[in-house]
Design a protein around this nucleic acid. Structure first.
Lengths: 332, 332
DNA sequence: TTGTACGCGTTATCAT
DNA sequence: ATGATAACGCGTACAA
């Protein structure tokens, strides 16, 4: 690859002159039109490109932002694609390069953390499923002075800015929606305490009686369609009547929908359904599935903006995105 | 961030000594145990990390591999996640950093190409939906000497190594599978000529008559569930009998499945169904959907291996991955 | 209008 | 056993 020196030698001028011309930073000095033209021509001809590492070394900025994503248990939800799209768009816009790393195990995360420092990148976004074991390492990275933003529901550690999401509000929104459409006997698949709270809040606000029999306790960390199927089976077996179901993922909701159809129920006529995540397949479920989006596009974008603010030395506070309701036929 | 010099000054030793100790490359010379211990201790204490840009500048290698992905029209298929997982795993394994960029429009791609050169990265993988307009730029990148590997079905331009996929073989595999399960009147949604060929090859090989009435011509570049629904509607409207349907995506297959159920048909009893992509939602479709995977995990991994081979100066040839059949209940 | 000198952090080579 | 020097490519302060 051609360097400034190659151009300078070819034209018998100094490297600094070439640098000035090509970087467009002439300072106080003037340059002859002829020299400019020559330099531009030869640069073009030699296919000159700045060496990013040299610039980084000099400026102390790599223009690289790391993105570490825990990608377990999110297959098919489209969450990761959405997140990456958001992060990537903002990075591009700010001329920052995006260094992507996935991890599953804690060990993989620890290994990544070792390479996460000012000698490698300017800032870091960490997102995905939270595990308490990660906190120590996140604190270490933050403590070492690397701009760091997390993407968890709630802030992990006080000084680390986070782009959060109110799961209670999301679940409340979903439940309120089914109520507004006429459901009165609302069932719920319980995975997450916050979401359970939101469900109860919506019931209370609407003056509906809470019935513990309508809550199906899912296996921990299991948001698969199996939970939806099992929930429906259990309700039917126990003779629990319900005309609405607030699931904890679109997979659960689709599982429930399938089971309902198998048992001869209709959606939404007999049971109104809503999921969470607004996965792409909501559109083409047996009955298009209503859902609440966690807006990972906006979350990704916000996290990148935040980390860039940190890099620039601006003050930054944790923020969060709002759940978005996508009503479809399953709750008509 | 602490540098070698910081450590050296703190210990009153030379920078080169610190470098030797910390990089583990002592050459022919020995170092006193005490010096080693001191240097290690202070390095730890100061949180020393190598500056990647300095190393890159010196070595001429950035240890960064770019990955440019055209991500249009693949939502929900899980393809991008799979691809990224494959690419990312191999990169990590070889201690290479992964620079991710998405693009949709040609202009976005051209902009990315401008930053794709030896001054920025060591190699590049480009994948996604192919458009002829990209070829010129791909050739330019390759011509400029940046190791480049493409991820298209067939090689785009002769000298550029590609990790391909035989769409004809995939479609043949899907069709053969339905035939082997007993389907005799096979319908087909036609998007791609290669896939259509594979369908016909399988029919011919099984001695089944080809009937043009059983082929539904999809809109160009439309692999959505709508095509599946329309195909079923058209067949039924025209009184075309079929006991198997080879779709061109899982979305099409799910669309067809939904329409079949709405019309009172059973899957697989009346119609056996198979899709392509093996998307995550195949597992939890109304009837779990059989599919043929394009094995984007392996493709991603292979492309990264190839580009790393190129970077190392090894000779490299285009390769391809095999379609993988995932039989499920929809073709039982 | 153009050139010189220096430094960013690291490592390889050669010297002491 | 340790140190000095040069070099990677670029930008900038300063000199000519």
């Amino acid at each position: 690859l051609a360097s400034l020196r190659d151009i300078a030698e070819k034209l018998n001028v100094s490297v600094s002159l070439v640098s000035k011309v090509l970087s467009g930073r002439l300072g106080t000095t003037g340059v002859s039109d002829e020299a400019v033209a020559n330099i531009r021509r030869v640069a073009e001809q030699l296919g000159y490109r700045k060496n990013a590492s040299a610039v980084a070394l000099l400026s102390g900025r790599h223009n690289i932002i790391g993105v570490f994503i825990h990608r377990l248990g999110m297959a098919g939800s489209g969450i990761i694609e959405e997140l990456l799209e958001g992060v990537s768009a903002v990075a591009l816009q700010h001329h920052q390069r995006l260094q992507l790393n996935f991890f599953i195990t804690n060990e993989e995360f620890f290994a990544l953390c070792h390479g996460a420092n000012r000698g490698t990148m300017d800032g870091l976004v960490v997102g995905g499923v939270y595990h308490a074991e990660l906190e120590e390492h996140l604190r270490a990275i933050h403590g070492a002075g690397l701009p760091l933003v997390t993407l968890y529901d709630t802030p992990v550690a006080q000084p680390i800015p986070n782009v959060g999401f109110d799961q209670t509000a999301a679940s409340r929104l979903a439940t309120e929606h089914l109520i507004s459409r006429g459901a009165r006997k609302l069932a719920h698949i319980r995975n997450m305490d916050g979401r359970y709270e939101g469900y109860r809040q919506a019931l209370a606000a609407a003056g509906l009686r809470y019935d513990a029999a309508r809550v199906f306790q899912a296996r921990e960390h299991d948001y698969s369609h199996v939970m939806g199927e099992e929930a429906v089976r259990k309700f039917l077996k126990n003779g629990v009547a319900f005309d609405g179901l607030v699931a904890q993922s679109d997979q659960e909701a689709v599982g429930a929908m399938n089971e309902l159809f198998r048992r001869g129920f209709r959606v939404p006529e007999d049971v109104r359904l809503i999921g969470i995540d607004n996965a792409p397949y909501c559109e083409f479920a047996r009955v298009p599935l209503s859902s609440v989006s966690q807006d990972f596009l906006a979350r990704g974008a916000a996290s990148m903006r935040l980390v860039l603010d940190l890099v620039e030395g601006r003050d930054v506070r944790s923020t969060h995105v709002q759940p978005i309701l996508f009503p479809r036929d399953s709750s008509r």
